Simulated scan of single mutants.
Amino acid sequence: MEFIYTESELDDIAKKIIKSSSSKTLAFYAPMGAGKTTLIKALIKELGSSDNVSSPTFGLVNEYALASGELLGYHFDFYRLDNEEEAMDIGLDDYLASGGWIFMEWPEKIPSLLPNDVQNIKIEILDEETRKLTLA
C-alpha cells in the first residue's frame, strides 16, 4: 500500500497507517530528514497521547502514555547504535513484549532483533515537501 503526502496531510496519513497496519510494531526505513519523527509524532497524537514527541536519538527510547496514564508505547531511534547487543542491553525484548505500540527509527541497525510481525514502513523523499510512504 502506498501513499503520497505532504506535511499538511500527516493527520490523514497517520489515520491510514493505524487502520492499515498489520502490527503495533512499526519499523520506519527512510533517509535522514525524510520526516520519520514528524510522522511518528502524528501517529502518537492520533493514538490519543498529548505527550511531547521528540526523537530519542541520545536516550535511544522515549515512552508515551495516554491521558489516563496508561502506556501507549515506545519510540526508539537506533541511529547511534554500533551493534545489536546495545539494543539488547537497553532491554529491547521487554519493550517489545509490553503490548504497547512500538515505533522504530533506523531498524536496519538491528535486523536480527526485529519481530516477525513488524510492519515495515518505507518513506522516500520525492521533493522538498512531498513524501512517498509504502507499507510493506
Rank of each mutant, 00 (worst) to 15 (best):
M1V: 07
M1D: 09
E2S: 03
E2R: 11
F3Q: 14
I4A: 08
Y5R: 07
S8C: 14
L10W: 01
L10I: 10
D11A: 13
I13F: 01
A14Q: 15
A14P: 02
K15V: 13
K16H: 07
I17C: 09
I17T: 00
I17N: 11
I18L: 07
S20V: 10
S21E: 03
S21H: 06
S22R: 13
S23P: 14
S23R: 11
S23A: 06
K24E: 05
T25W: 12
T25P: 01
L26Y: 02
Y29F: 09
P31N: 15
P31S: 14
G33P: 04
G35P: 00
T37A: 05
T38R: 10
K41G: 06
K41Q: 11
L43V: 06
I44G: 05
I44F: 05
E46T: 15
L47W: 11
L47N: 15
G48V: 09
S49A: 06
D51V: 13
N52E: 12
V53T: 09
V53G: 01
P56E: 12
P56R: 15
T57R: 08
T57W: 10
F58V: 03
F58L: 10
F58P: 01
F58E: 10
G59F: 00
L60H: 04
L60S: 02
L60N: 05
Y64P: 12
Y64R: 02
A65W: 15
L66C: 13
L66H: 15
A67H: 12
S68A: 10
S68M: 11
G69A: 09
E70K: 15
E70H: 08
L71Y: 10
L71P: 09
L72V: 09
G73Y: 12
Y74S: 14
Y74N: 13
Y74D: 14
Y74H: 10
H75E: 07
F76S: 05
F76Y: 04
D77C: 02
F78S: 13
Y79F: 04
L81S: 00
L81H: 01
N83P: 03
E84S: 11
E85N: 07
E85V: 00
E86D: 04
E86F: 01
D89Y: 13
I90C: 04
I90F: 11
G91F: 12
L92K: 07
L96Y: 06
A97L: 14
G99T: 01
W101S: 03
W101D: 09
F103S: 03
F103P: 11
M104T: 00
W106F: 11
E108A: 04
K109E: 14
I110K: 05
P111G: 08
P111L: 04
L113D: 11
P115C: 08
N116G: 06
N116P: 00
D117Q: 09
D117T: 08
D117M: 02
V118I: 07
V118H: 08
V118R: 06
Q119Y: 01
N120E: 13
N120F: 04
K122Y: 02
K122L: 02
I123M: 05
I123C: 05
I123F: 03
E124Q: 10
I125C: 09
L126H: 03
D127I: 05
D127N: 08
T130Y: 00
T130M: 00
R131A: 02
T134I: 06
L135C: 00
L135K: 01
